[in-house]
Amino acid sequence: MGPRTKTAFFWALILVVAVWSSPLSALDFGHEVKLMGQLVAYGSAPHLVWMIRDEKGLLYYPAGKLQEDLPKLLPLTYWWTGVLERPVVGFGVPAHKGSFRILHWKARDSGNESPVGVDSLPGNGIISSPDS
């Protein structure tokens, strides 16, 4: 391996390490991830955008119907599991690391876990809905 090859290999290695060690790499998109965070509202009521903010302060956008349903959760920290997708480009939400197709969640300090699926949102023992 010549010096130039070594240099190229070195920088490639650095790049791979950098990508893997970044808070959220492109490699994560399309895969199931688990993160800990809580819901945070942006805007002025009632036109709020609900985001998940993890403990590092990074924002994730819960997509679709979850925007309406997730605020019914108790304002606690949850473990969120879901498929991470690319940020919603050009949409009027705060800059974020990725949109989030949530599969399930559980309270950080609870042994319980929500059933899979948005439809299970109200009254599953972990979350509290004003409507339930």
Binding site: A41, A45, P46, H47, L48, V49, Q67, F91, G92, V93
Partner: peptide, 9 residues
């Protein structure tokens, strides 16, 4: 303000 949350995206 309105008591509900709503998407504006």
């Amino acid at each position: 303000d309105l008591p509900r949350a709503q998407r504006f995206n």
